[in-house]
Amino acid sequence: MKIKQISLFLENKPGHLNAICRTLAKAGINIVTLSLADTQQFGIVRLIVEDWERGRDELEKAGHVVNVRDVVAATVNDVPGGMADLLDAVGAVGVNIEYMYAFSFRTNDKAILVFRFDDADKAIEALKRIGADILDASTLFSH
């Protein structure tokens, strides 16, 4: 239950992020979550959108540099140690986390985190083994 994430290259100049959001809005594509990683010189915007294929096409057509990767969305028990259990589980099978970010909304008392693993399939297996809740796209978009 991997989810497609669109990432975009973000120049260090005003209005670039805005242009990305506007392109998607014009095409009627909903942004489910957005996360930003940036340095002084440039940034990377990571988006999960409904209809990622059309999202990618529209953004590329508008001249943006786009890449699509599999990510995993998992719920984490909002109790002490919840996150540590999860990290232990993937660490134990030798999977590395490239990066992660929190989803923009929560479900019940649980936080949703989006992970980019170097081996998504192996990570999902390990997470399932400890009973973690892996969300699929339709669950995500229904929120």
Partner: peptide, 30 residues
């Protein structure tokens, strides 16, 4: 282009190193 900051930083470092090698100066890579 990569979604990984680490890889993107690596690209910048490679450019910086190549320019430094050719000119002896560090430049701002944008």
């Amino acid at each position: 282009f990569s979604d990984s900051m680490r890889e993107m930083q690596q690209i910048r470092e490679n450019i910086d190193r190549a320019i430094y090698g050719a000119t002896g100066l560090h430049m701002v890579i944008n």
